[in-house]
């Protein structure tokens, strides 16, 4: 039980991940699927940031008088990059959804199956 408590941050990330996955799997609306995807992404980012977290830590800004303990800078950089990537994908997905809506008249996957 103790383990669950100490790792509660990770578990929370996992929970968010699962929520996103559920949406992705179950929802037929493409937009909702993208939302689910974004939730999953957020979860993963949270997970990575959690890994770099330091209890009572400060941001890794190394001024002349900066005093630790610092949070690990690496996960933050990774997540920053990850976010940009996620944004890019989301943007492309949205553009494609717009296109699908225009060309196929729907964004519901179960209706789109009948296209053509």
């Amino acid at each position: 039980m103790n383990v669950l408590l100490t790792h509660v941050d990770y578990i929370a990330a996992v929970a968010i991940f699962l929520v996103g996955l559920y949406i992705l799997l179950v929802k037929q609306n493409l937009l909702k699927k993208i939302l689910g995807l974004n939730i999953m992404e957020t979860a993963v980012f949270a997970f990575i940031v959690t890994a770099g977290m330091t209890d009572n830590g400060v941001p890794p800004l190394l001024g002349p008088d900066a005093v630790g303990p610092f949070a690990s800078p690496l996960p933050h950089a990774l997540v920053l990059t990850g976010i940009v990537v996620a944004v890019s994908i989301t943007a492309l997905a949205l553009a494609l959804i717009v296109r699908v809506k225009r060309e196929c008249g729907s964004v519901e996957l179960n209706e789109l199956g009948k296209v053509e």
Binding site: A93, L96, V100, E103, C104, V115
Partner: peptide, 17 residues
């Protein structure tokens, strides 16, 4: 064509996951 957009988004969804 409509197939291309749909194919792309399917590809994107699986690829993103």
């Amino acid at each position: 064509g409509p197939q291309a957009g749909l194919a792309a988004i399917k590809y994107l969804l699986l690829g993103a996951v």
